[in-house]
């Protein structure tokens, strides 16, 4: 499979998806560095592996289940103490720009 060369716009787009803000200098630097890694990965992308099944888990295990019995919850005070901002026993966040996608 042929893969196009990574562009600065690609990096900017990906940074947006990943909720990272990059300065212009970082954009340039990362574009170059990531392109080198992806070029190295081109050997992988070019292989004809259409007939090879993917391996997502090295150890083939199936049907790992737990019984529907209650476990321990965490004390609310302990949970909320770790939060940057709390109000009315809830996690407070600044205004949200839109509905969930």
């Amino acid at each position: 499979m042929d893969t196009p060369r990574l562009t600065r716009d690609d990096v900017a787009h990906v940074a947006g998806l990943a909720r990272l803000h990059l300065t212009d200098e970082e954009l340039d630097l990362f574009t170059g560095q990531l392109a080198v890694v992806l070029d190295h990965a081109a050997d992988v992308a070019l292989l004809d592996l259409a007939d090879v099944p993917p391996t997502a888990h090295a150890m083939a295990v199936t049907n790992v289940l737990r019984p529907d019995t209650p476990g321990l919850t965490v004390d609310r005070a302990e949970v909320l103490a770790a939060a940057p901002s709390v109000e009315d026993h809830r996690f407070r966040v600044p205004r949200i720009l839109g509905e969930a996608p």
Partner: peptide
């Protein structure tokens, strides 16, 4: 092209 292919390489 990338992730899917990498998982096949893993099989190899």
């Amino acid at each position: 092209a990338y992730y899917g292919q990498a998982l096949r390489v893993r099989t190899k």
